[in-house]
Design a binder for these strands. Structure first.
Lengths: 204, 204
DNA sequence: CACAAAACTAAACACTGTTCAATTAAAAAT
DNA sequence: ATTTTTAATTGAACAGTGTTTAGTTTTGTG
């Protein structure tokens, strides 16, 4: 068959991402199959190559969707949190872990997919990825009294890396960290220690 | 051909691990091929399944070798370091990053290989993995004054996770963390802040 | 209505991992 | 010294991949 009228270009794009995301959540990165994803959408692999330019483009799109869901998850948690800065940071870290645990495979796929430096990430996708950093930036900046914005941004990235490390080692089951019952609690404790070192939460 | 006399069982095992490790360092986890590794060793895939029981066993063996090299790298760095606890911690963090950068693909393969919980890791391999934690434990314990050994162990794992997070995000190129020029420095700063929060480096 | 462009498929290619019967070489038994 | 047994190794098969390309079908347009 040729061009089908049952889906517009955008609908098809969305459908393929949805099916791909579902399959990724179900099987994980290693057992993901573009063929199978297309099959579930009622199409053939070739279509994926048409729409996304290649497998990398497709995986980027799928992972970007995960980023969007993740950001929403964090924003939702922050909405329910109080206005106390320390409480908001805790909510943020807890929500970070919750999302990763709830969406194990999809979350891990983000880091499983190694993007070749030669390939360029579409603006829209890059934005979805940076949105997450933006949320953390916004919340952390409130608590940090003095210091240049650049220094603050560096710290934000470092804090994200800190939480990421705990979360990643936890979910991959690496190390005997498995025996750690509350990795989120440990990550939070470290974040708090670091932030206090930078005179955050300083009561006036 | 049948049984060959050109390699004993142990030699063959070692040869296959060497070739596999080399290929892993060269191509990375995603493009690793057991067939190709066996080919380089002068054997066929089947032999890998004979010797290691399956692909998982082979990958575990390859990654365990990386752990051994990593531990050695850290010990070497510590040998060259002074006796000052703070300096030793710095040497440890720096060496951690150096090894990961120098052995990018092999290092990442450790975390790329998701081991099914059903499969059991051979004692020897488990030991190689735990050795690394042991080194950190030994060095950190010196600086931590009070506190139960269990609490200390939890902190050690948490510190490892902290450094791991920085290193992983750096090497995967995730986030705009790429723009960070000295991720090792950031990781070290966080480690120091955390340790000071736990009254480490307390001068008597 | 004819045509050109776009969407989509089907099939091919060169690879995987995994299994297993068949072969070969060495060790053990006669 | 021969035969038998046992174990190591291969080769071929199977069902999957990702990727490319020629071809077919559908649609919008001249």
């Amino acid at each position: 068959m040729g061009r089908r009228s049952d889906h517009t270009a955008n609908e098809l794009r969305d459908l393929l991402i949805s099916c791909g995301h579902e399959l990724m959540a179900e099987r994980g990165f290693a057992k993901f199959s573009a063929r199978e994803a297309a099959r579930r959408a009622g199409y053939t692999v070739g279509t994926i190559y048409n729409v996304f330019g290649g497998l990398d483009g497709y995986l980027i799109a799928i992972n970007s969707r995960t980023f969007v869901l993740w950001s929403r998850w964090l924003e939702d948690a922050l909405t329910k949190a109080s206005t106390d800065p320390a409480a908001r940071i805790e909510a943020l870290v807890r929500a970070y872990f919750e999302f990763a645990e709830t969406n194990r495979n999809a979350w891990m796929a983000i880091y499983d997919h190694r993007i070749d430096r030669s390939i360029e990430i579409p603006r829209e996708d890059a934005a979805a990825r940076e949105a997450l950093t933006g949320i953390v930036d916004r919340e952390v900046s409130v608590t940090l009294g003095t210091g240049s914005p650049e220094e603050s941004q560096r710290l934000v990235r470092s804090l994200i890396a800190t939480v990421h490390g705990h979360c990643a080692l936890w979910l991959t089951g690496s190390y005997a960290l498995m025996q750690e019952e509350d990795p989120a609690g440990q990550a939070l404790a470290r974040v708090q220690e670091i932030m206090r070192s930078h005179n955050a939460f300083a009561t006036a």
